[in-house]
Design a protein around this nucleic acid. Structure first.
Lengths: 277, 277
DNA sequence: GTGCGTCGATACCCGCCAGGTATCGGCCCA
DNA sequence: TGGGCCGATACCTGGCGGGTATCGACGCAC
């Protein structure tokens, strides 16, 4: 199976429409149709159900979509990591606005090591780190369990913390010593926000769509949302917001994660520095 | 980057010889040379150092060899798992001769679950399971830490056990109540055997080369080798062999491992059955 | 030093297949 | 029932992957 065929299939499987998929791929529709049916013939299984008005995935198609994305990521990672070989240095990715003191300490500790390489920091939206790590755009990530999935990566735990509810400063509950999770999830007029998923789209629901912490803080200050965040967010919280501990919210564990089998000395040094923090 | 190019590069990188690599790939040498230099041009880095008498990997080449193998495994896994989709059932792989009672109990427990699928059992040599799991020939494996690497897989621990020294029945040490690891590694005339690595080749050393337990037991019975194995091997040990506990040998943990992101119901059922054992 | 063998690179040719355009055929809907 | 949407089919073309022949560099034997 060639990566070209995988790319074609993934495009069709995502669009569920040969015409749009062909457009996205920059080719005409007929060669795409032919490539897919050729792939189906060679694999010996139907991947798509065509009914002239709708295209749907078969069970085998769903498997190939999942496995094919992973395979394409692995191929892209091989490409990118090879191009970057020789250029020394690491790319670390983390959620914008999370673990900033921890990150600063980590970078300082690593920089003090003998033979430390440059570390480029990449900030991204939630649920994007995993992808960046998987497709080779980053070498190492700071993830937050249980929000981020660490499946398929090697990890070391760095620290754990409780969570706090973030509310407008003047809100009646803002002066409480603590809150229960149930209190916060059901605040009238202050719904929890919705973050984009790994594919960049939003699930349905009542809360406003946000894609970074600045947006979120703005919405909370405006009295349009509330949030439950790791307590380390307090140190850089805006003055018009208040934080109240939520003891029954799940503990958040910050971990440093990297692709298994990474053999880079620089990465080993960074992980060593991280575990010594 | 196409998988064909990756296959070509991996072949050359493994053979370090264009002619042999071309032969292995079933093509002529010139197209192979051209494909590799094209790949180098597109990536913008040198992958191989050619000196008309020897071919060596550059640093970037070593990166691409490692990452390229992983990518090819992922593509192969996509292929195989797609072909197998629809054919219900699981393929479980484990080292021949290890954990046989545990495996029997697991298969019984799973078979008793409602909606259980057929489970095909694949027995293989040590250090091969990881590969089979990674390239889609198997869905789930029983691995033994610390011998097998579980990097990149999801795992659940199943059980732990100590290790025993396996000696010829008449050996002077066979009647001891226990041994230290140092006693066994330095037995005159009874060297520890050498197992093949992930690539099927043997490291240099004094012991005999073995590739399965039957071979090993035969050699021990002949007074040509000794071994340190998990104590569960005692139940099916030949009568001409003796086992002596070695308390200071590392504890062996049997884990059930599967590729992350596996979404199959059958796999989930098997893991559930395993954790309830 | 010379000649030969080895091995990767280059030159050149051919056939296949990826990709294009034109068109068909089924289906929904107005 | 006709028009429009959409995937499949037919057919053509060009690029590229693969072949053979040959070159050029190097190491080695004598």
């Amino acid at each position: 199976m060639e990566t070209r065929e995988l790319r074609y299939f993934v495009a069709v499987a995502e669009e569920l429409h040969f015409g749009r998929a062909a457009q996205r791929l920059g080719i005409a529709q007929p060669p795409l149709s032919r490539a897919i049916s050729q792939l189906e013939r060679r694999l010996g299984v139907a991947l798509l159900e065509r009914s002239s008005r709708a295209v749907t995935l078969t069970e085998a198609g769903a498997v190939l979509l999942r496995e094919g994305r992973a395979a394409l990521d692995a191929v892209e990672a091989a490409d990118r990591r090879t191009r970057r070989a020789g250029h020394p240095g690491l790319i670390l990715v983390t959620k914008a606005g999370s673990s900033s003191e921890l990150l600063a300490k980590l970078l300082d500790a690593y920089a003090a090591e003998p033979g430390a390489m440059t570390v480029d920091v990449l900030l991204c939206g939630p649920a994007q780190q995993e992808r960046l790590l998987r497709d080779g755009r980053a070498d190492v990530a700071l993830l937050h369990r249980p929000f981020d999935s660490t499946a398929g990566f090697d990890t070391e735990e760095l620290c754990s913390e409780g969570q706090v509810a973030v509310l407008p400063a003047g809100h009646p509950l803002a002066s409480r010593a603590q809150l229960r999770l149930a209190d916060v999830t059901a605040l009238p007029g202050l719904p929890l926000p919705r973050w984009p998923g790994p594919d960049g789209s939003y699930a349905d629901g009542p809360g406003p769509e946000v894609h970074d912490n600045a947006q979120l803080y703005q919405l909370i200050a405006l009295g349009r949302a509330s949030a439950v965040l790791p307590e380390s967010c307090r140190v850089h919280l805006r003055r018009d917001l208040a934080a109240v501990p939520v003891p029954d919210a799940p503990t958040v564990t910050t971990v440093i994660a990297w692709p298994p089998h990474s053999r880079s000395l620089a990465l080993a040094g960074l992980v060593r520095a991280a575990t010594r923090l």
